[in-house]
């Protein structure tokens, strides 16, 4: 039995909006409405969805970067929700983050050596020599040279900067790395290098990833398990192979169909999604996807579908998921 690295249970986050008037009821942005999942050691868990579906809010809450309204996040069995800054400090070495923008997330005034060594401050004091050795070790594991330590971020290209950001996340030897769109700012040829690096690091160091992306092809390449989010809830979750081969939620089907294919020949037949992501500020009855769903019927407007198992470890929140899987299978 594998060790569970990350366990998220019923995570809720509602951002309050300014009141329209003194006596008006308070309004909220319902960013996360009860999200649960677990990730086992050495696995990659992908989260996909459109912008505004709560992917990044989830990352920030898992990283304990903001207050959570309800629910629990356990990393290696330690609860991180509700802890104070000082209580979290020694725990932070176990979970690190890689951000989307490699230009904005590295301090331009610091040398690469200092940027990478910074997370070590949260550990017990290390001698200068030890710290330098750790930085050199981690630099070579991300494919940079130990001499790059004394350079500044502007001397590196986008792909190399993302390697520096990965090195900074790796230096505390974390069990979990949360990566929020780590390759979407990179060119295709460089993106492939970084994706291969992330995979190699997983093989050599056994790190666990929570990987957030809007690019389904990237998620398919890197992740063992995938969760699809829509309006703050997971609508489908399962092993990557199952979910991509037999999507059990119409939203997943549509997302997969929307990815343009680089091949010659005729346009594909597909269902197009109409409308935008809406209704983040209102709570309503029934399925969150009802306005845009091509299969919607009366039941969807009355009953909110819950995550149910459609196949072995493949869950979907749709009244029609069984039919969808049978059709695809």
């Amino acid at each position: 039995m594998n060790k569970t690295v990350l366990k998220v249970t019923d995570l809720v986050r509602h951002y309050p909006l300014p009141k329209e008037s003194l006596l008006a009821p308070p309004r909220f942005v319902y960013a996360l409405n009860g999200v649960s999942f677990t990730v086992e050691e050495g696995k990659s868990f992908g989260i996909v969805g459109e912008s505004g579906c709560g992917k990044s809010t989830l990352a920030r809450n898992v990283m304990a970067l903001e207050d959570t309204d309800a629910g629990s996040v356990q990393i290696l069995g330690n609860e991180v929700v509700g802890k104070t800054f000082n209580e979290l400090r020694p725990l932070r070495q176990h979970f690190q983050m890689v951000f989307q923008d490699p230009y904005g997330s590295l301090d331009p005034h610091h040398t690469v050596g200092r940027i990478i060594a910074e997370p070590l401050a949260a550990l017990e004091p290390l001698s200068r020599q030890e710290r330098e050795d750790r930085v050199k070790e981690v630099l070579s594991s991300v494919g940079l040279k130990p001499t790059d330590m004394s350079k500044y971020p502007h001397e590196f290209s986008g792909g190399q900067r993302q390697r520096i950001a990965i090195a900074r996340a790796l230096i505390t030897r974390p069990a979990l790395i949360v990566a929020d769109e780590p390759v979407s700012a990179l060119d295709v040829s460089v993106q492939a290098q970084v994706l291969n690096l992330l995979r190699d690091l997983q093989d050599t160091h056994g790190v666990t990833y929570m990987f957030i992306s809007h690019d389904l092809a990237v998620v398919e390449y890197l992740c063992d398990e995938v969760a699809v989010m829509y309006l703050g809830s997971i609508v489908e979750k399962g092993k990557t192979e199952d979910l991509f081969a037999r999507p059990a939620h119409p939203y997943t089907r549509i997302l997969l169909d929307a990815v343009p294919q680089p091949a010659s020949g005729k346009k594909r037949d597909r269902i197009r999604l109409t409308g935008n992501v809406t209704g983040q500020t209102e709570k309503r009855s029934g399925c969150a996807f009802q306005d845009r769903c091509p299969m919607v019927d009366d039941r969807c407007k009355r009953e909110t579908p819950t995550l149910k198992e459609v196949e072995d470890s493949h869950l979907a929140a749709c009244h029609f998921s069984r039919e969808l899987v049978e059709k695809a299978g």
């Binding site: 492939a192 092809a217 398919e220 390449y221 890197l222």
Partner: peptide, 25 residues
């Protein structure tokens, strides 16, 4: 050829490594 091979494509599966073009633009 390299650009095409470096693109992750849906349905490619997870067992193949992505082709990379060495160096940068």
């Amino acid at each position: 050829q390299g650009l095409f091979a470096a693109m992750p494509k849906i349905g490619m599966g997870r067992n193949r490594r992505l082709t990379t073009i060495p160096g940068t633009v």
